[in-house]
Amino acid sequence: MISIENISKWYGDFQVLTDCTTHVGKGEVVVVCGPSGSGKSTLIKCVNGLEPVQQGRILVEDADVTAKGTNLTRLRSRIGMVFQHFELYPHMSVRENLCLGQQKVLVRSRDEANAKAEALISRVGLLPHIEKFPGQLSGGQQQRVAISRALAMDPIAMLFDEPTSALDPEMINEVLDVMVELAQDGMTMMVVTHEMGFARKVADRVVFMDAGRVVEDRATEEFFGNPESERAQDFLSKILNH
């Protein structure tokens, strides 16, 4: 469903991505990990065109994200995205956050949008908070709202950019639980994360990146059981052994 083919990207003279290739099949969960600065967040932002690439191409279903003339706005409305810092709209209530895209992009009626918002927000256990503003919620609650906001658009795939990195440790699990449930429901997901427990539990494949390159792209058990590259071994020993 998502196919990333030999993409390279530069910020000025600095090359952030070098010849990256990977894919996410329908219903698959792919975890992207690697040391900070390895380009994993940049890679995932290229998938829905938030960041342009200079070489290679990215296909989502059959649409070419990187081609000129592609209707990016339409394409993005079909791919959900969750950010490290939530990025809920602070001047809108939880309900309004969930309804904006539904009403303005999908042109759903107010009632339809509200019903969808309420159903989704109940699923993450936050219905009593639906009239509150993001600033009144904890980080974990905000991220669960952000996931619901993305799901309200009925996406064909979901992108997660370090969804738990900005959270206090005690709130990480409430967000991961929602993501696990989503994965088990068959959602196509690409997840940038350091949460190796999550990767083990639900990922079909793990993509390991370092210095802007895809170093490993393998089935989850293989990756954890027998990482090929020294850099992945090193990374895993640092992240797992404490």
């Binding site: 829905n48 993005r76 995205m81 950010f83 709209y89 303005k104």
Partner: peptide, 24 residues
């Protein structure tokens, strides 16, 4: 990030300005 969030849900440039950026 607020602009990115708007873009990611498929809002157009003007919709993002109107509903997300200008009110803030």
């Amino acid at each position: 990030g607020q602009v990115h969030a708007g873009q990611a849900t498929g809002l157009s440039y003007w919709q993002i300005q109107r509903y997300v950026v200008l009110p803030q």
